[in-house]
Nucleic acid binder design. Sequence first.
DNA 1: CTAGTTAGTGATTGAGTACTAACTTACTCG
DNA 2: CGAGTAAGTTAGTACTCAATCACTAACTAG
Lengths: 186, 186
Amino acid sequence: MSAEERRESVIRAATTEFARGGYYGTSTEAIAKRVGVSQPYLFRLFPGKKALFLAVAQRCMEDTIRTFEEAAKGLEGEEALRAMANAYTKVIAEQPERLLMQMQMYVTVGAAEQAGDPELGEAVRSGWMRLWDTVHLPLGADTDGTTTFMAYGMLINCLVAMGFPPEHRVWEGLYPQARLEGRLEK
Amino acid sequence: MSAEERRESVIRAATTEFARGGYYGTSTEAIAKRVGVSQPYLFRLFPGKKALFLAVAQRCMEDTIRTFEEAAKGLEGEEALRAMANAYTKVIAEQPERLLMQMQMYVTVGAAEQAGDPELGEAVRSGWMRLWDTVHLPLGADTDGTTTFMAYGMLINCLVAMGFPPEHRVWEGLYPQARLEGRLEK
DNA sequence: CTAGTTAGTGATTGAGTACTAACTTACTCG
DNA sequence: CGAGTAAGTTAGTACTCAATCACTAACTAG
């Protein structure tokens, strides 16, 4: 397997591990095991653990932005909103680790910046702004609507992180299709 | 100082440290240093690091619940909503570590449960439900309103975690008094 | 005074972890 | 074939960190 392909599979494996344990709670060995490669080899593919986390965070942001872009393509206003909500519901069901990884990157910014490493914070904030604009545009530049949409998204992220099962009443009124289709998984 | 008083100051110090670094990113030595006590002594006051984190998490939930209870006391509907929003704004400005600690406990649930430790998850979920009910009641049992209120709260938590400065445009429309009074601090 | 308790410390240990260095295998191209 | 290169491993280092142990100083009750 080429180094580039390996890097790709490392990013996928690291997403799962970092999503669960966060930056400090995840060992490079756990990531290597999941990839099926020796732990030192990770340091050939990435300069260090921080760089790997950053790569995962950026990938995670890009994926989410692309999810919304594709969902809202050609739509506007209410229709675009529903399409994006549906798309997010699908992510909840099929790739909850992407939501958890988002949470993990948010809470890691503070520690990184205190440690004198502004890179992650800058990447996360700029990613957030791009995400925000991605939603803002198809909603017809409705700022309140965009804020509300993002707010619901963050609530969902938190509920997923807390481990509420899909049939729990906290999900009432939140993207109901997720419950009806019964696809939310732990 | 009595053991009980010490435990209290340990919880306060640990809140600050855990808020910044999370469970895995915070050493017991850092907490002990902040308290002004030797590191081994922490283990006289708490059975272990996990127990300390749990104590901090529970305290954090109780404080937030009490904040809303007191703010909404004697009020109903729209008035209660505004009072609770104002109260939260004050927390953002004066005790941002409480918001960060909330985020940290949410994202730590997954790792704890995978490690075969359901205690934190149960405490967090039950705390969330109590918080939810605390908001739900004064809003006149308006479920949608409660969900929206909680959603905005989670969005705010995330923005604080990401380190957006108070004058940044992402805060537009979010608890505007926070910006106007210029009290949001890093 | 003495026996016991309470608050607290210094030294240490054992496990885990990010990262490095040196080596090996397999494939490619002249 | 033979040289180079790209992918990957084994072994090891330096360090951090939660937790334990054995100890001490101050106070308190009989």
